[in-house]
Write a protein that binds this DNA or RNA. Structure first.
Length: 608
DNA sequence: TATTGGGAGA
């Protein structure tokens, strides 16, 4: 038996990699490392220090594999970034060591199934659990509740919930969060209100569920209510969550208020709040404040670095992105798969083919990260945008993933841009076969076929659109004016100030024409006369919003607009003209990136 | 000896 003092020493290492290694070395030297329960304790200690490879090694070095050892490693694996590794471990446990899973093992496996979103595995575990001697265990039940919610079937979670006699806080919050994140707002609120005690944990679960379901306005409202209720904010999770909601809403005024609030509560140096604020400022087009907050985070992790890096990338600041990456490596930080999405994306939007190629290679070679479909799509975009069309086509057919709508779409826009007619038609046919979901893809396809006079294909595209009842999602844009935000819909002139806006836009257009503006109506899908098409463009929502902004804000201030779709080519041109004529900096966040318009130019260098 | 719920990046 391991002396109690030695067991206590292992437990006391609490998340410090150096301490675990030191204690492990001492145990080896004193010949205690194999005494039970040292192996299981070491596995857990390594796992708590985020040293999964070391935990695995400790597992492999153990003289005997028992349930304790398995449950320690399974708990670590199911919490890790690769929960799928729990499955081979389970098979090994069942066949090589002939061990039956107990409630500890079942709880961890259910949590792995939740993270893998594997309803099949989850249901199998549930069946096994019900037939096992542990079928009354509430910890496994809370894990199953979470699994059903994460797999999108909160009604099944409810059945497990109802089977629990005395419910603790974990059980309640698991289901509240599950209802909310699946968009079952009413159920979430009802359950929340019927909780015997509503602590910070429950509020955080509810609010984060709202944010996950995209109900950001609701989340902010709940946060206000929580404050009114006088709930003490002991930890920073809820702030990070609600700041994330403000980021999605692009609500800069609200975001600034939350920032001030974080300072008041003393969470300014908190990493998770800092990370959320960096993302919020970046999504609210205020990249300067994002940089400032990033500079103030004392202990930065890979998420902090990746957040600011992706922010700079979306704002088109390639030099900053590459400089940040160097600083990140110098600081000893290991980039992950998200970091590489940001890096390759930045290179793609700046046409840095060699640099992007080098990064794509180093991801696998130096960091052992297997490129995902998203990486291939970014890389494909980089090659094809920069004119390496045949290499891109070769890549799309040889890459280890089935190309999706985004991959073919990227290739199609590129060969359209580079006027490779034959390839355009080949790619378009492939894309059409996928029966894309995104209406803008059909617009692109229809344009490509129309330009090449493939009228039968144009007809086919239109027929599919009609069949699938695909209509282009209506465009809308919003802009913050004072404390509230104002929304503009394409083609709809607001009653109160519409006249003022249209008059102003007309003035702008006539000045633009003097400077050489010719409307580009190729993005208008409808069968209309040319002047009617121009009228359509004239009322695109971002123009209404920008005109409103210029009219209603102090001269010289920055105009920030958010749009739900991508800006069309013509609006992009118009924004450049307006920034020059009105002498205003205009920042538009569209569905894919940011455009900073200033003195007739855009930060995206025509890459979007 | 171990197990469950809320958090930040695409």
């Amino acid at each position: 038996m391991l002396p109690p003092a030695a067991a206590a020493a292992i437990r006391a290492t609490a998340g410090s990699p150096r301490a675990v290694r030191r204690v492990h070395a001492r145990l080896l030297k004193e010949g205690l490392a194999d005494l039970l329960p040292a192996p299981a304790l070491l596995v857990s200690a390594y796992a708590r220090s985020c040293l999964l490879p070391d935990a695995r090694r400790a597992f492999d070095d153990a003289p005997r594999r028992d349930l304790y050892l398995y449950s320690a490693l399974l708990a670590a694996v199911s919490r890790s970034s690769a929960p799928e590794l729990a499955l081979p471990l389970l098979r090994r446990m069942l066949s090589d060591d002939a061990l039956r899973p107990d409630h500890f093992v079942l709880a961890s496996l259910a949590s792995a199934a939740a993270r893998l979103r594997s309803l099949r595995l989850g249901r199998q575990l549930h069946a096994h659990f019900v037939a096992s001697p542990y079928s009354a265990d509430d910890v496994v039940k809370s894990s199953l509740i979470d699994m059903y919610c994460k797999c999108g079937v909160p009604e099944d979670a409810r059945k497990v919930f109802d089977s629990i006699g005395v419910k603790n806080g974990v059980v309640w919050t698991a289901l509240v969060s599950g209802y909310a994140s699946n968009g079952c707002t009413g159920e979430a609120i009802d359950l929340f209100r019927s909780m015997p005690e509503r602590g910070l944990f429950a509020w955080t679960a509810l609010i984060s569920g709202f944010v996950k379901a995209g109900n950001n306005t609701g989340a902010v409202g709940l946060f206000v209510e929580m404050r009114r209720d006088g709930v003490r904010i002991d930890d920073a999770f809820v702030l990070a969550t609600v700041v994330g909601g403000a980021a999605e809403l692009a609500a800069l005024v609200l975001g600034r208020q939350l920032h001030g609030f974080a300072i008041t509560l003393g969470f300014l140096s908190s990493m998770i709040v800092g990370n959320a604020l960096v993302d919020m400022y970046s999504k609210c087009s205020d990249i300067h404040s994002a940089r400032e907050v990033f500079g103030g985070i004392i202990v930065r992790d890979v998420v902090s670095w990746t957040t600011i890096l992706v922010g700079e990338a979306q704002h088109g600041r390639v030099e900053e992105v590459l400089a940040l990456y160097d600083r990140m490596l110098l600081a000893g930080m290991k980039p992950n798969e998200v970091t590489f999405v940001g890096l390759i994306y930045a290179c793609s939007h700046a046409g840095l083919v060699q640099k992007g190629r080098q990064l794509f290679d180093s991801m696998k070679r130096e960091y052992g990260i297997k490129p995902g479909l998203q990486h291939y799509t970014c890389y494909l975009d980089l090659l094809s945008r920069s004119g390496y069309l045949s290499e891109a086509e070769e890549l799309i057919t040889t890459m280890p993933y089935e190309p999706d709508e985004a991959s073919w779409g990227a290739l199609l826009s590129a060969c359209k841009k580079h006027n490779d007619t034959q390839m355009c038609l080949r790619v378009a046919d492939n894309l059409l076969e996928l029966r894309p979901k995104d209406p803008s893809t059909y617009i692109l396809l229809s344009n490509v076929y129309a330009v090449n006079c493939k009228w039968d294909s144009v007809a086919k595209v239109r027929k599919i659109m009609a069949e699938m009842e695909i209509r282009k999602e209506p465009g809308y844009s919003w802009i913050e004016a004072g404390r509230e935000s104002r929304m503009f819909h394409a083609g709809e002139v607001p009653l109160d100030i519409g006249e003022e806006i249209t008059r102003f836009l007309e003035e702008l257009v006539s000045e633009m024409r003097k400077r050489g503006y010719v409307p580009d109506t190729s993005s208008v899908m409808h069968d209309l006369e040319e002047n009617e098409k121009e009228q359509h463009l004239f009322l695109h929502s971002e123009r209404l919003a920008v005109a409103f902004g210029i009219l209603k804000s102090p001269p010289g201030s920055v105009i920030r607009v958010v749009k739900n779709l991508r800006v069309c080519g013509d609006c992009h041109t118009v924004m450049k003209f307006i920034s020059e004529i009105a002498q205003r900096k205009i920042i538009v966040r569209d569905a894919s990136r940011f455009h900073h318009f200033e003195d007739g130019n855009c930060s995206c260098s025509e890459f979007w």
